[in-house]
Design a protein around this nucleic acid. Structure first.
Lengths: 225, 225
DNA sequence: AATTGCTAAATTGTAGGACAATCAAAGGCG
DNA sequence: CGCCTTTGATTGTCCTACAATTTAGCAATT
């Protein structure tokens, strides 16, 4: 029953990676059920690996797993989004402080500058999708520069991508522009080796982003929060 | 090949729970290899569930999974322990602040007081093992009182239990006593609805605990860190 | 003697089939 | 109309088998 035989020879991305990509792309919509048998066919694999992949994605917070019911693409309630923002505020501020402390290292600085280069572009951001990607890249760059691997891993688990996927469509160009300016401020503080400013600006950025999220139409979130 | 047939009727703890308990108890030593076939016999299950359990424990940071090599009980390097402390400091301070803010709620207060009751006992702590358990209970109580479920889940993933299991044997009674007094200070600040004090005392507690960890013999940690 | 190369064993990764356990909906009955 | 039973779908688990990979041991060469 191996409909596709093209994957024998190559070591392509793992099952979990492919599923993860499908979710982030929106190919699987939030709330959609993920039936093991279907994924087995879709991914050309067997139930064992599919189950393991689902467990991994659950740990990453991308899917919700209900015993004896199955898996579905996770959809955050407003309350959950707020909880995530609270945590993220602290971790992001910590990462920004540490990044500012590490930025004297030539290697760290070079990599950081390269990764955030796109924020200095002045052309307006027409596509919210591309802004979401840029936003993700920027925040990840800070966590990378913190040189705390566990912190960088937690960044993945805090589902910024999920939140953005849920509210992204409702972002105004104004919001995007403000966010961009704040990014520049944070980046400048880090490059200036100013941990205090990096901490302060990072927290201000998160607070404003939370305000934006809270002003979104409730329909974007799962009810019962 | 079901050596044990006692689990058919009852819904006892899951495979992952039993493995997790075995690791935290120290029945499986840090660094020990966990071979799927052996666990299959030991747990009276089959390879499928065992593999899924190992994946879950990896996500919780209890075991290390190397592709095509297998699983081993995780052993932290000193650098990893320090990274975890950095993160934990921020999250614990956040949890303490929020707990202090929520403690006016009668329900939250009652539960919190019940869970931390043991810290008011004045008898000396002879057994480090029981102190480790008491310590874990105390910190978990704070995270619970924060009413941020994601935060409570992260608490589990920050492997306080692993760190304690590694260094526990080398703890002095002096250290234990100091820690106990600091716990009382934090608890008092929370019960007094004083977020600022809870934040400050929590950070001080973590800083001192980190100092203790850093003064431990390096042999307790995995090298290459 | 040390190093290299090869074979063999051990272990993981995956496939596929089978069946019990559980949940959700459909239908029958008072 | 509401409650109960049945039925179907899906997950949870077990089993076997085999390919892929790593590890260890042995042999041969330098």
């Amino acid at each position: 029953m191996s409909g596709n035989s093209e994957k024998r020879g190559e070591k392509g991305p793992s099952i979990a990676d492919r599923l993860s990509a499908s979710i982030k792309d929106g190919r699987f919509a939030p709330g959609q059920r993920l039936v093991e048998a279907e994924l087995t066919i879709e991914l050309g694999s067997s139930r064992g690996p599919v189950r393991e992949a689902l467990r991994k994605l659950e740990a990453d917070g991308l899917v919700e797993l209900v015993p004896n019911k199955g898996a579905m693409v996770r959809r955050l309630s407003l309350a959950e989004a707020i909880e995530l923002f609270e945590i993220r505020t602290e971790l992001e501020a910590l990462a920004a402080r540490k990044a500012a402390g590490n930025i004297s290292d030539t290697c760290v600085r070079a990599r950081f500058e390269a990764e955030i280069a796109s924020i200095w572009r002045d052309e307006p951001r027409y596509s919210t999708a591309s802004y979401i990607a840029e936003n993700q890249t920027f925040h990840t760059a800070i966590f990378t520069a913190s040189l705390n691997r566990k912190l960088a891993r937690l960044n993945q688990q805090l589902q910024l991508s999920l939140i953005m996927a849920q509210i992204g469509s409702a972002l105004s160009t104004d919001t995007v522009l403000t966010s961009l300016y704040e990014h520049r401020g944070i980046a400048t503080a880090i490059l200036d080796r100013d941990p205090q400013a990096a901490d302060r600006l990072s927290r201000a950025h998160m607070r404003r982003a939370l305000d934006v999220v809270q002003s979104m139409p409730p329909a974007l979130f799962r009810r019962q929060g």
